[in-house]
Write a protein that binds this DNA or RNA. Structure first.
Lengths: 233, 233, 233, 233
DNA sequence: AATGAATGAGGTTTCATTCAT
DNA sequence: CATGAATGAAACCTCATTCAT
C-alpha cells in the first residue's frame, strides 16, 4: 500500500502526522503488551519506514506524541469543565477521568509506557519539550482548579492534578491483570490481584480530592522550590 | 575461557545469585538511565553471559528479583515498626520511606522500571510469582497497619500501602530531573520541573495517611472483589 | 518553497548546469573524504534536490561531468603546448601535470572516484559517453604527441598518456595520507606511508616519458586491437 | 541454513573468517559490478547478519581483508620467486602477475574497489592496519628485488612494485569493457575502448621494469622522505 | 521546470537469548 | 555447570532517486 500523496502544506503534514499516530495506536493496541514496532507502524500507516522518521525523530518521540494527543483530550475536557461557570463537583471530575483515561483502551498502557520513559536519558530536546507540554497544561489547569475550589491554596491545584495522574496510572500498573493468563486467578497467592482497579481508583481519587478540597481538611501544600512568596488570603 | 568453580550446593547457588544481583545493581546505577545490559552484568559479576540465565530466566526476572531484594528491606523494616508495641506515627513511616526508598540510589529507578514491567506481557510464572511476593507482603503489612490504626477499616491498610507506593514511585518519575541536562532549567517552559520531589512526596504521603488514619476523616474503603473477608494470621 | 526562475533557454541551462557543478565541487572539497551528498549539493546550489536530476541523470554522471570539466582544462593546456611549434620537453609536461592535476585540490580525489566508477555497472549511455569524451581527447593528444616526439611509434602517444594518468591518480591513492589522523605517523609499521607523493610521481613520470621518448630506449608499443591504422585529422 | 557449530578455538575462528571471505568473494563476483551486499554475504556464508560483524567491523574492512587475502597470494609467490637463487627475469614476473592478479576474476575488481577506498576517511585503525600490511610486504619484497636486480638502487624495488601495482589496477579500470553492454563496440566514438588490457599491461610493465632494471637505463629513484643517506655501491 | 515529500534499500548497531561444547 | 559464539529481531540512519504537485 503505497501512498503517493505528498503532504506539501503544513496542514497536510499535520494530517499525516496524525495518520501515523493513528497507525501507531492501532499497532500499540494490537500487540498485547509487546513493544511498539516501527516497521509495523509504517506498514499500518501505509508508509515507508523511512517516512516515519520524517515525522518523528524516533520511537520514543512517537510514543510521547501519541500520549500527548490522548492527554490533550483530557486536558481540553477538564479545561472546559473548569471554565464552565456552573458548579463543579468531584463526580464530574471522576467521570471525566473515566471517560478520557480509563475507558480508551490505549490511554493507560501508553501513559504507563511514557511515565517509564521519563527516567531514561531521553534526548534533551525530547525531554524538555514533553515536560513543557505537560507542565504548562498542568499549571494552567491547576490554576483554574484553584479558582473553582477556593479551599485549594496556591499551587495545590497542580499538585492535586499530578498526584491524581500518578495514582491513575500507577494503580493501573499495579493492578493490571495480565489478560493473557486468565487462569492465574486460580492461585491462592494472588489474592492481591483480585483488587479491582476501577474501584480502587475511585476510592483513591475521592480521598485525594476530598482531602484537598474540603474546606477545612485541606493539607498544607508545598509551593514550588522557586515560587515567589505566596499570599494567603 | 574462564572456568569458574561450580556452585554445586544450594547454598553456593544462593551466594552466586546474590553476587549476580550485586553486579546488576552496580551496573544499573552506573548507567545513567540506560537499560540494564546483561553482557555488562555478566562482566561485572565475573561470569559468562550464559551463566546468568542459569540463575534467572531472563532480564526482567533479574530486575524484579533485584527490586524485590530492595523492597524486602522496606517491608521488614515496616513490619518491625508495626510489630513494636510502641505508638506509631506518620513521621516514623515517612522516615522509613525516606531511608529505604528515597535514599538508596537504586530503589526508585528500579521500582520505576519494574512498575513499567507490570503491564507488559511477562511470562505467567514471572508475573504471578512477583505479584504473590508483593501481594502477600502488602496484605500482611496492611493488616498490621489496621491493627495499629483503628481508624483504618478492613482492607484499608493494604490500600494505603499501595497508594503510597504508587505516589512514591510515580511522583519520582514525574519530577525526575534529567541529570544529564542541567541547563534545561533555563527554559521558561519547564517551570513544572522545578517542583521538588522530596517535598511533593512528603506532602502527598502526609495527606494520604492523614486522610486514612484520621479518626473521622476516614474514607470508605472498597474491599477486594472477593467479598469474603480475609483472615490473616 | 522556493520557486526559482526557470531556465528556458539552452544558454540558461548551461549556466545552471555549471552552477550545479560548481556547487558539487565545493561540496566535494568540503567533505573530507566523504561521499558526495546530493542533498548538500542541492542546498549549496540553491536548488531543490529534484532539480539536480533535470540536469544530470544521477550522481555518477554528475561526478563524471565534474571530472571532465577538470580534465578538459588539462587537455586544452596540453593540446596548446603540443600545438605550439616551440620545442617541448618533459619538464613542461610535468609542470602542466602539476598545475592542472596535482595542485587543484579537487582533481585527484575526483579522478580517483571516477576511475573507481569505471568498473561498476554504469548505465551504458553514461559509460560510453564518458569513454568517448576521454578516448577522443586521448587519441588526438596522443597523435599530437607522436608528431612532436618522433621516437614515439604510432599509438604510443595515447598509451603514454593513459599510463601517465594511471600513475598520477593511482600513486596518489596509494600514498594518500589520511589527513584526519596526523598521529598515524607514530606507528612504526607505516613507514610505507612516508613516501612522498610529489617526488614519487615526478620520478615515475620521468621514467615513463624518458622510456618512451628516448630515441633508442623506446619500448615497442602494442597497437590497438583494431589493427586498422587510425587516421586522425 | 543455520550453522550451529561454534568456533571456539582461535583456529576455528580463522576457518570461519575465511569462510566469510569465501562467501564475500562469491557474492562480489556474482553481482556484476553492484556493491557488495552484507545481507547477501551472510546468507551465502550461512550465517546471521550479526555474525559477520563479529568477524569484521564493517563492510570496508571485509573488502580490505578479502583484498589482502588475494594480495597475499601474490606476495607469497613473488617472495618465493625472489628467494629462489635461480636467475629471475621479467617474464617470470609478468607470468606471476598474470596468474595472481589478472586471471583470478575477483582480484582486479577488488583491488580497484580497495584502491578507491584509500582516499576516503576510513576509521584510523582500519586505514593504518591495511597500510601496514601492504606497506611491510612491499618494503620486504622491494628489498628482495633490489638484491636480485643490482641495477635497482636502494628504495627502487618498492617503488617499482608500487608503480607496477598502480598500472595493473589503473589500466584495468581504464580499459574495463563493460561486459553488460557488448554492443557498445558499435559506436564509432569508443575506438578508445578497443585497446586491449592484457597487451597494454604487458607493454607498460615491460617498459617500467626494463627502465628500472636495465644496467644503465636506470632512472634515479627518490628515496623516502625520511630515508637515511643512501650508499651507492 | 522546479519542488521536496516520499520511497526503499541496505549498512550499522545493539542486545537478549540460545545452545553446542 | 559454565561458557561465549551465534542468533535474529529491530532500531536507527543515510541517501539516491522518484514523482505528485
Amino acid at each position: 500500500m503505497v501512498i503517493r500523496q505528498r503532504a506539501r502544506l503544513a496542514e497536510d503534514k499535520e494530517v499525516r502526522r496524525n495518520a501515523i499516530l493513528d497507525a501507531a495506536e492501532k499497532v500499540y493496541l494490537g500487540e498485547g503488551g509487546r513493544e511498539l514496532n516501527m516497521a509495523e507502524v509504517a506498514v499500518v500507516a501505509g508508509l515507508a519506514k523511512g517516512t516515519l522518521y520524517l515525522y518523528f525523530p524516533g520511537k520514543e518521540e512517537l510514543l510521547l506524541a501519541l500520549h500527548e494527543r490522548h492527554a490533550e483530550g483530557y486536558f481540553k475536557a477538564l479545561g472546559a469543565l473548569l471554565a464552565n461557570p456552573a458548579p463543579v463537583n468531584i463526580d464530574q471530575i471522576l467521570a471525566l477521568v473515566q471517560k478520557h483515561m480509563v475507558e480508551p483502551p490505549a490511554f493507560l498502557p501508553l501513559a504507563s509506557r511514557c511515565l517509564g520513559l521519563m527516567d531514561q536519558c531521553l534526548p534533551e530536546e525530547t525531554a524538555v519539550t514533553h515536560a513543557a507540554h505537560v507542565g504548562m497544561a498542568l499549571e494552567q489547569l491547576g490554576a483554574a482548579l484553584e479558582r473553582r475550589f477556593p479551599a485549594l491554596i496556591r499551587g495545590a491545584g497542580t499538585t492535586l492534578l499530578m498526584q491524581s495522574y500518578v495514582l491513575i496510572v500507577g494503580l493501573w500498573q499495579l493492578l493490571q491483570k495480565p489478560k493473557n493468563y486468565p487462569n492465574c486467578q486460580d492461585r491462592i497467592e494472588v489474592r492481591f490481584l483480585r483488587r479491582d482497579y476501577p474501584s480502587e481508583l475511585d476510592q483513591a481519587l475521592r480521598a485525594l480530592w476530598l482531602g484537598y478540597t474540603e474546606p477545612r481538611g485541606g493539607v498544607p501544600v508545598a509551593t514550588p522550590q522557586s515560587a515567589t512568596p505566596v499570599e494567603l488570603p
